[in-house]
Computed example of a mutant assay.
Amino acid sequence: MLKLTRRQFGQLVIATATFAGLGYLGKRTVAQTSSIIYGVRVPKAGQLVIQSLDLATKQIQELTSVSIQSGEQLNSISYLGSNKFVLSISPLKSAAKGNNSPRLLTVTVGQSPTSTPISGLANDQNLANVLVTNDGSLVGLTHRSDKTSSTLVNIDANTGAINTINNITLPVSERFDNLAQSKLDNVAESNGIIYTTNLTQQGNTSLVQLDLTKGQVSPGAQLTIDGKVWNSGFSTLASASGDQIYALGAPRYVTPNNLYTINVSTGVMTLIQQWDVVKTTTSASGA
C-alpha cells in the first residue's frame, strides 16, 4: 500500500479538486451552449416555417409550418413548452379595414393551429411583442401607430384579453421594442425583471430594465459589438440563462439576420452565427 506524507496528501487533494472543478465547468459550458433556440423563416408571403437551432451542434431542423392570410403579418413568436408556440399576428397597415383582426395563433407541432382573437387593444394599438416569462405567464408590449408610445401588458393566453400593467410606465417620447428575460441561477428576483430595448432617432440601441416587482424602469447599458456602438435595432430578443439574452438582427442594409448574445450588465454583444429567420424565441427558463 502506497503511503503519502501529509504534504503529498494535501497536494493530491488540491489537484483532485482542481480537476473536478474543471470538469464541472466543462459540463456547465456544454449545458449552456447546448440550448435550443427557435426561429421563424418566411420562405414566401403568408407561409411561416418554425425551425429549431441547436447552439451546440449548429444543426437547424424544420419543425412545422403554418399559413397566415395575405393581409396579415407576424409580430412575435413565443415558446410555451412541449413543442407548442404562440404567435402574435396582426393586420398589415395596407390591409382593408375590418378584413383581419389581431390574434394569437397557437401552433403545436403535429396538430392543427388554433386562433384566439386579441381583445383590449385600442384602434391605433398593435401587440408588437409577446414574452412567456420565467413563471409561465404572458407579457406583451404594445405600440401606438406612431411607435413612440409603448405599454407593457398582461395577456390571457386562453381568452386573448389584454390588461395594462399599471405599475410600469414607459416614457411616451421614447421608442421601446422587444422583450426578454435572463434567468440567474437561484435568484428568484430575476423572475420579475424584463429587458426591452430603447432606440434613439439615430438607431443607437440600449437595454432598459423593467422591474415588475418594484415598478421601476431603469436605463441600462448602451449596446456595443467589437467596441462599436450598435445602431441597427433588432428583429427580436429572446430569453437566456445566466447574465445574457439573445438578439436577432443585422447591421443596417445587411441581410440575412445574425444571432447574438447580449451581456445584460455590460451591453457587450457577441456574434453566434448567421441565421436566416425573422423572429426567435426560447423556453421560458432560457434553457
Results as ranks from 00 to 15, higher is better:
residue 35 S to N: 10
residue 277 V to W: 09
residue 189 E to Q: 12
residue 263 N to Y: 04
residue 120 G to V: 06
residue 286 G to F: 01
residue 220 G to N: 07
residue 124 D to N: 10
residue 46 G to T: 01
residue 142 T to P: 02
residue 82 S to R: 15
residue 147 K to R: 11
residue 69 Q to G: 12
residue 260 Y to Q: 03
residue 142 T to I: 00
residue 224 T to L: 09
residue 174 E to S: 09
residue 7 R to D: 10
residue 7 R to A: 12
residue 217 V to R: 00
residue 104 L to F: 02
residue 89 I to K: 04
residue 5 T to V: 09
residue 116 T to A: 03
residue 217 V to F: 00
residue 274 Q to I: 04
residue 194 I to W: 04
residue 143 H to A: 05
residue 106 T to I: 11
residue 285 S to Y: 00
residue 5 T to F: 07
residue 59 Q to W: 04
residue 97 K to V: 02
residue 30 V to W: 12
residue 195 Y to T: 02
residue 240 A to Y: 01
residue 202 Q to M: 03
residue 91 P to E: 00
residue 74 L to K: 02
residue 273 Q to N: 02
residue 91 P to N: 01
residue 53 L to R: 10
residue 152 L to I: 07
residue 210 L to P: 02
residue 180 A to G: 07
residue 263 N to F: 01
residue 196 T to W: 00
residue 105 L to F: 10
residue 183 K to Q: 12
residue 100 N to W: 14
residue 48 L to P: 07
residue 98 G to M: 12
residue 32 Q to Y: 06
residue 102 P to R: 00
residue 80 L to W: 07
residue 23 G to F: 09
residue 80 L to C: 05
residue 233 G to V: 08
residue 128 A to M: 01
residue 75 N to F: 03
residue 72 E to Q: 14
residue 127 L to H: 06
residue 147 K to C: 08
residue 157 A to G: 08
residue 22 L to T: 11
residue 194 I to K: 03
residue 207 L to C: 05
residue 90 S to R: 01
residue 14 I to S: 05
residue 139 V to K: 13
residue 203 G to M: 14
residue 81 G to N: 11
residue 242 G to N: 02
residue 222 Q to P: 08
residue 168 I to E: 00
residue 223 L to W: 13
residue 119 S to C: 06
residue 65 S to D: 15
residue 35 S to F: 00
residue 54 D to Q: 07
residue 140 G to F: 10
residue 170 L to F: 07
residue 81 G to Q: 11
residue 81 G to V: 08
residue 106 T to N: 12
residue 1 M to N: 13
residue 10 G to Q: 14
residue 7 R to S: 10
residue 46 G to L: 05
